[in-house]
Amino acid sequence: MKRLQDFTAGDTFELVREVDPYRPVYYAGASGDFNPIHIDPELGRAAGYQGVILQGMCTFSWLSDACVGYLGDPTRLVRLRGRFTKPVQVGDVIRIEGRCVAVEGGAVKLELSARNQRGEDVLKGAVAEGRVEER
């Protein structure tokens, strides 16, 4: 597993996820979020979208997955935040890009972006922090 000295400001990492037609339903089943705008295309259209939209918290999980992949241990992620700026819809391909901006003591500070295939931000202001203890 990566050690503290393996983390350096300027490191980058990325993760890509495709939104297949069933993803919002699978995520609903696994997370318990059955808001009908994620399940029923007619309701999604009534709400002003092209059809169903993916749960924002599924995209948020992808941010977390990107950070965990970089940090090397799921328990090292101690903070994650972001603003949802654009709905994610079926057929979208989301690219998460992360960058280590500072390593202060055991705190590894990260900034992230999440963009769709058109280059539009689906999340903004995404930041995370990892804590890596010396063993």
């Binding site: 705008i37 309701l43 918290m57 603003r83």
Partner: peptide, 28 residues
């Protein structure tokens, strides 16, 4: 979710989006 669907708050769920999120993870 309970707050968003609380009849006392009378929020229209179809006009609602999740705007921001923050987590602080303390224990696995």
């Amino acid at each position: 979710a309970r707050a968003c669907s609380d009849p006392e708050l009378a929020v229209n769920v179809l006009r609602l989006v999740h705007g921001e999120q923050e987590f602080e993870f303390h224990e696995p």
